[in-house]
Design a protein around this nucleic acid. Structure first.
Length: 563
DNA sequence: AGTTTCGGCGCC
DNA sequence: AAAGGGCGCCGAAACT
């Protein structure tokens, strides 16, 4: 049995499959099967299935309980390769890749559809283009050659494998759903907001707070209309530029307290209230549609339901099934640890080589024990902070960890100058990303490289334009956030394999946090598997490195009890 | 009336 | 003086 097989879905839902040799070329005759499940089930020893789109195939496998070991997602590969080649914006479908090879007209990608609440099969792609197996093989062979031509072929191949694994995990999470107790959710809502229908059609507590705000101003003010609030403050003799919380917090006025409380609860009501519950929770599960690789940095997004923005108070509703547990695992200080691994800064690698609190260690070395300052400085360096305490403390950071800071500085400069910036494994930042305004559809730099623009947007001689600086900040953050996403994909892939021979299921993933739903007796094994997967992912992603990737894990029945 | 943008905030 | 990065979501406001 060949190690790799290719699989092409036909118009009628049947599939053609063929074994691939070590060179990636067909090593046997094409066979016809009734569907992906039949094809996979009768070939249990295949190590990797090569197909056009995991989102197309995986739901059909999951529906019949068939699992694959690994896959190669051709359209994920095409996206990564186009990015690496500096060709962001070109159509990324397999059909487009084929057309480019044959010199024909290149079809545009189908438009992204958005999720509909309660959709039964949200992953089914209505506009799926069924390429014959022979064409898939042509594209695949060319993609192999394109991997070979990248700056680090071994890393790029790993990235494609990791992204493909992520697509499998995402499909499995979409299938499983996050255990969700609607009754608990309703109780939380009632505790926070009071009766659902009380004053003016809204919840009681919001009506009360709106009254308090109005009383404080001495006239009727609607707290959810920013313009109305700004006007009311103006009439009270307080000049505010917006109604953002950080700005209001420094205002001394009796309306501030109820206003901030109102906005907090209003947010819960509109984004995770009763109608959200009705729209997104079915049969005891919340099913956001996870999209692996949904952002340019490689972070995932969810399509529908705000799956990655579940407010802390609402997590009370995430409850394990009877006899089961949630293993909630959160990577400790992931971004500075990743910065240590990619920059090879000796000092930062040394502190990241311990599992203890990294910010405290940085603080001990450079900030005379003030952990909060150290954390601000590190995050400021990663995010490109341009003012405030973070900037002030950056100098101390630079003295102690020069290679780490210059690593992100170099990325920022490259971004400003419109050069390509890549994560450790080779995911590539679009040159125009981070531009202040739209018009990046062309996928090309928006304005002149720094210093050569004849119409600078700001008159600061020798400095980059505002847009260029925005791209610099984007690129600075990209190398860290994106390399962290590289590592997280490998972590997920390893954890998925560890869960394979247990009942445990991966049910949630949020950048540096993962939740496994498992029978109580498997919880200890899962905790160990997370630790082992994290270290394995570190070695696979970054090669030999002293950097550790510890997790804080909690075995709980309720997500709200973690942390 | 329908679509896009804005303001604001949730998460990391 | 200078907006710290990435997202999604909602209603209101602003547009067509």
């Amino acid at each position: 049995m060949a190690d790799r097989w290719a699989l092409a879905v036909a118009e009628d839902g049947g599939v053609d499959v063929a074994p691939l040799g070590p060179d990636g070329l067909p090593a046997g005759p094409v066979r016809r099967e009734a569907g992906p499940a039949e094809a996979v089930r009768s070939r249990p020893d295949v190590a990797r299935w090569v197909w056009r789109s995991t989102a197309e195939v995986a739901p059909r496998l999951l529906a019949t309980g068939v699992r694959v070991e690994r896959c190669y997602d051709m359209e994920a590969a095409e996206t990564l390769l186009l990015g690496h080649e500096g060709r962001y914006g070109e159509p990324r479908s397999a059909a487009a890749a084929l057309a480019r090879l044959h010199g024909g007209p290149v079809p545009a990608d189908p438009p992204q559809r958005s999720a509909e609440p309660g959709a039964q099969s949200p992953l089914f792609e209505p506009q799926a283009v069924h390429l014959p197996l022979e064409d898939l093989l042509t594209v695949y062979a060319e993609q192999q050659r394109r991997h070979d031509r990248t700056a680090h072929p071994d890393r790029m191949r790993l990235l494609t494998a990791a992204e493909s694994a992520g697509m499998l995990v995402a499909a499995e999470m979409n299938h499983a759903g996050l255990p969700w107790r609607a009754d608990v959710h309703r109780q939380v809502l009632h505790d926070l907001l009071g009766d659902r229908y009380a004053g003016g059609g809204g919840p009681r507590r919001l009506a009360e707070l709106a009254d308090e705000v109005s009383t404080a101003f001495g006239r009727r003010v609607r707290p959810d209309l920013p313009a109305d609030v700004v006007r009311a403050f103006g009439q009270a003799g307080v000049k505010v530029g917006s109604t953002r919380r950080w700005e209001l917090e420094s205002v001394d006025h009796p309306a501030v307290k109820p206003l901030i409380e109102y906005k907090k609860l209003y947010r819960i009501w509109v984004a995770h209230g009763w109608s959200w519950l009705q729209d997104w929770v079915r049969d005891g599960r919340f099913r956001p549609e996870f999209l692996a690789g949904g952002t340019v940095t490689g972070r995932w997004v969810t399509n529908g339901g705000g799956g990655l923005q579940i407010p802390k108070v609402i997590r009370r509703a995430v409850v394990a099934d009877p006899g089961w547990r949630l293993v909630v695992a959160d990577a400790d200080q992931m971004e500075p640890r990743v910065l240590a691994a990619i920059s090879r800064d000796p000092g930062l690698m040394e502190v990241a080589g311990r599992e203890s609190d990294l910010y405290q260690s940085v603080s001990d070395r450079a900030f005379s024990g003030d952990r909060a300052q150290a954390k601000l400085a590190v995050l400021g360096a990663v995010y490109g902070q341009t003012s405030g305490d973070g900037l002030k403390n950056l100098a101390a950071l630079r003295r102690r960890f020069p290679k780490a800071v210059s690593y992100v500085d170099d990325a920022a400069r490259a971004g400003e100058e419109g050069r390509l910036v890549r994560t450790w494994l080779g995911r590539t930042c679009p040159p125009a990303a981070g531009a202040a305004d739209g018009a990046e559809e062309a996928g090309l730099p928006q304005d002149e490289p720094a210093g050569s623009s004849d119409r600078p947007q700001e008159w600061v001689p020798g400095y980059a334009s505002r847009d260029a600086r925005a791209r610099g900040r984007f690129a600075r953050n990209f190398v860290v956030q994106g390399s962290a996403a590289d590592w997280a994909l490998l972590l997920l892939a390893a954890l998925r394999q560890a869960c394979a021979d247990m009942a445990a299921e991966l049910v949630f993933f949020q950048h540096d946090e993962v939740i496994v739903h498992c029978p109580e007796e498997e919880a200890d094994a899962i905790v160990a598997a997370i630790r082992e997967s994290a270290e394995l992912a570190g070695r696979l992603t970054f090669g030999p490195t002293p950097v550790r990737f510890p997790f804080t894990t909690a075995v709980v029945e309720c997500y709200g009890d973690a942390k």
